[in-house]
């Protein structure tokens, strides 16, 4: 599904190039649950962002579903987000001005899902995540764990093939973290959704079936 070849990424400050990623080569197959691990500042988020097409590598090749990502324009990227990729953020990033229900609806509107189906899909997920009672509340009226549930529900609602999660439990207590990890596991096992997460915790990484260790911008085999 994903093929990275010699991905390189540096940031330029003045004439100084700071390499964050170097010679990153990896292959992720459909149906995998991969955890990216490594010390702070190792470039995990950067790698995930590249996979999520939010950032472009300064060198190297990236193939997604057999297509070269470097050829994508903004419109095509938006299409990818609508059809294939769901994001879960550490800081949740829900839209403050929308209710839970509307946050879940937003991606479906972008996908042009008809209204009746939107309703049923949202009702489904609300039910599944046990947040039916919260549907008319705004994000700031929810606890962190609840917000992240909504964040995951929003990532799932478009039925993506790939979920990218950057420290999804970083701001949560361990009990809530467990709940979310088991949701991921279930998704991966039962629905075959490919999941790539960044995490610091060995325990979380244990839910997945492969670990990529990043150190000094390179993958430790």
């Amino acid at each position: 599904m994903i093929e990275l070849k010699d991905i390189e990424r540096y940031f330029q400050t003045g004439s100084l190039k700071t390499y964050v990623l170097r010679y990153v080569t990896a292959k992720i197959l459909e149906g995998e649950f991969v955890s990216i691990m490594g010390p702070s500042g190792a470039g995990k988020s950067t790698l995930l962002n590249i996979i999520g097409m939010l950032e472009e590598p300064t060198a190297g090749e990236y193939w997604f579903l057999g297509e070269g990502v470097h050829k994508f324009n903004e419109r095509r990227r938006a299409e990818m987000y609508r059809e294939y990729i769901g994001f879960v953020f550490q800081a949740y990033h829900l839209i403050d001005d929308l209710t839970v229900y509307e946050n879940l609806e937003a991606p479906l509107i972008y996908k042009k899902v008809p209204s009746a189906e939107r309703k049923s899909r949202i009702a489904d997920l609300l039910d599944r995540f046990n947040i039916v009672a919260k549907k008319d509340l705004f994000p700031n009226q929810l606890s962190g764990g609840q917000q992240q549930l909504v964040g995951i529900a929003r990532a799932l609602i478009g039925r993506p093939k790939l979920i990218l999660a950057d420290e999804p439990t970083g701001n949560l207590q361990s009990q809530q973290a467990e709940e979310i990890m088991s949701i991921f596991q279930q998704l991966n096992k039962e629905e075959g959704v490919t999941i790539i997460q960044v995490t610091h915790s060995e325990e979380n990484a244990g839910y997945g079936n492969r670990i990529l260790n990043l150190k000094d911008g390179k993958i430790d085999a």
Binding site: G52, L54, E74, R75, A78, E79, M80, Y81, R82, E83, I85, F87, H93, L94, I95, D96, D97, A106, P107, Y110, K111, R154, G158
Partner: peptide, 16 residues
Amino acid sequence: AREIGVRKVLGGTRTG
């Protein structure tokens, strides 16, 4: 800005 960023990763286009 956050709203815009989030909308973009949810598949919102610039036109939208």
